[in-house]
């Protein structure tokens, strides 16, 4: 759909798509990682936790810079990807998803890890003695008991990816319909002094983010009342 019908629609859809795909893939990656972190007695656990938390403190340009190198045709990830029959990752949507997963990793791993740690091993032991297989016990007991952690992870991961700017600019560039997400579009409009478009998109983002967070807090609140 051409952008001029509803201004800003395409970057918005692209942003939502990027945030959605990134968050879902992250949940899949973060679940085993968070479980391992919550259970391991490895003396290097603090080291691994620090690695996961790094994107919280690094400037997005630093992550973006290293991701650009890794995802490039000569980089480790980029070369393997092309080796498996994929296209160049830099300045593509797929590359953007991979970079966003790194960027939002702590926002998804940490709430899930906290939820797992809050449950403790004894619940698993009950499930086993009641005849549940290890994996079955994980899905029928651990995951439902961590529902709140997952909800937090989903929302934080989604909202954080939606709001990213620096990494997208470094890894994805500014290609309409491919990598031009809403934050880039806003930046563009401001650069060209097109303030009315910038206003519209910014206000839209503001309201959407606010609604998203309100719904989470509402659900959390209900949860607390029920239990």
């Amino acid at each position: 759909m051409p952008d001029y019908f509803i201004p800003g629609l395409n970057p918005l859809i692209l942003s939502l798509k990027l945030a959605g795909v990134t968050t879902l893939l992250l949940i899949l990656v973060a679940t085993p990682l968070a479980w391992w972190l919550s259970q391991t007695k490895n003396i290097f656990k603090p080291f691994f936790e620090a690695i996961v938390a790094l994107p919280l403190v690094l400037p997005p340009t630093v992550i973006g810079f290293y991701m650009l190198i890794l995802l490039g045709p000569e980089g480790f990830i980029g070369r393997s990807w092309i080796g498996m029959g994929g296209d160049t990752l830099t300045f593509s949507f797929s590359g953007l998803v991979i970079a966003s997963m790194v960027y939002s990793l702590p926002f998804v791993v940490q709430p899930i890890q906290n939820a797992f740690e809050g449950i403790g091993r004894h619940v698993l032991e009950s499930a086993w003695t009641l005849g549940a297989r290890p994996l079955g016990a994980f899905f029928s007991v651990i995951i439902p008991l961590s529902a709140k952690g997952y909800l937090t992870a989903l929302v934080l991961g989604f909202a954080h990816t939606l709001g990213e700017f620096g990494i997208v600019l470094m890894v994805g560039g500014n290609i309409p319909d491919k990598t031009r997400v809403i934050s880039i579009a806003i930046y563009d409009h401001v650069e060209t002094l097109d303030y009315s478009y910038a206003h519209m998109l910014s206000a839209g983002m503001l309201i959407f983010s606010l609604l998203l967070l309100i719904s989470v807090y509402l659900i959390n609140h209900r949860w607390r009342i029920r239990t």
């Binding site: 619940v123 032991e125 009950s126 003695t129 009641l130 549940a132 297989r133 007991v141 008991l145 239990t227």
Partner: peptide, 17 residues
């Protein structure tokens, strides 16, 4: 899970969900 053992703990351990 293959032992056909029942275990009742001191701290009960029901599933809250």
């Amino acid at each position: 899970h293959k032992r056909r053992v029942g275990l009742v703990f001191q701290d009960v351990r029901l599933f809250d969900h």
